[in-house]
Amino acid sequence: MRILGIETSCDETGIAIYDEKKGLVANQLYSQIDLHADYGGVVPELASRDHIRKTIPLIISALEEAKLTSKDIDGIAYTCGPGLVGALLVGSTIARALAYAWNIPAIGVHHMEGHLLAPMLEDNKPQFPFVALLISGGHTQLVRVDGIGKYQVLGESIDDAAGEAFDKTAKLLGLDYPGGAALSRLAEKGQANRFIFPRPMTDRPGLDFSFSGLKTFAANTINQAIKDEKILSEQTRADIAYAFQQAVVETIVIKCRRALKETSFNRLVIAGGVSANKQLRQSLGELMTQLKGEVFYPQTQFCTDNGAMIAYTGFIRLKNGETSPLALEVKPRWAMTELNSIT
């Protein structure tokens, strides 16, 4: 079985082909970062228009990369939600049209389930059950995973997601969009203990996150530093970036430790765009070493939105006999707990 995956939930157009016997045989990705950089964030209408321009050419490129034709494709998986409604409609419409024309089944995939299962593309796959940390610009969730579709949300962000807080704080520091990765690079030059940021919601029970206040604390710290220095020095910017990142990472580590203790699991899966953060990977690796457990990540290229995770997730569900109806439906908001479980 060969599945074509289409991802168009936000600002990246991802196309991939997953082969049941060979694994991933094609992976094409186009990022819209340059398109949205002038606006300091994703402009939904521009994102949708760019997906229209890029999706079909990338599908053709993916087929060429895999040395396949449309006749070799057995099913199509597309991101049905959550995401930007216009962007989702582009991928869904193209997927449904191709499935109808090629006379093959199609399945709408949950974007976050795609992220959650992205580590399954690696040779060292996590075994069920495990705790998953889904961490990106739009989501920060701790999920108990007992199997495909067997998900229980243990905790999530009640305001800004971690990736969103990274990007907003980076903007406050004058870094270009998207600023999360740039902030992490700047933090590598920072000095410890010059600025001390709070670890939000760690002084109370529970597994929910809150990063909005941390962003406000960063803004106040920057404003005070400007008053003290007149012109913010590069070292001060680096020290603030270091303190902010350290606060986010340590908060996440504390919550992950709690989740693992609560579930008695010794496997942790980290996925989503922020899972590429070096400091986060190192700190969670140290945590799992202390707990004598294992931590699993997707490759860096599969941390951000991509077609590979959609193709793989679609393969799992199509093989289980699931399909989506021809009538077009997208779900900008969609809880993972609504998904069917696979026994």
Score class of each variant (00 low, 15 high):
I3H: 05
I3R: 04
C10Q: 07
I17Y: 12
E45H: 07
I52C: 12
I59P: 01
A62Q: 11
E64R: 13
K67H: 14
L84Y: 05
V85P: 01
I94Q: 02
A95V: 03
L98M: 15
A101S: 15
W102A: 06
P105K: 02
H110E: 01
H110W: 00
L116P: 06
A118R: 02
Y151G: 02
V153L: 13
G163M: 02
L173G: 14
L175E: 07
P178S: 12
L186T: 09
R194Y: 14
I196R: 15
G206H: 04
S210W: 07
L214S: 06
T216L: 11
T216E: 12
I226H: 05
D228V: 04
T236V: 14
D239C: 13
A241N: 13
Q245R: 09
V249T: 15
T251K: 10
V253M: 04
C256L: 07
R258A: 08
T263L: 10
S264M: 11
F265L: 04
R267N: 13
V269L: 08
G272P: 03
N277H: 14
K278M: 12
R281N: 09
L284H: 12
E286K: 09
Q290M: 02
F296K: 05
F296D: 10
F296G: 09
Y297P: 02
P298V: 04
G307L: 03
M309N: 11
L318T: 03
E322S: 08
T323Y: 08
V330D: 10
L339V: 04
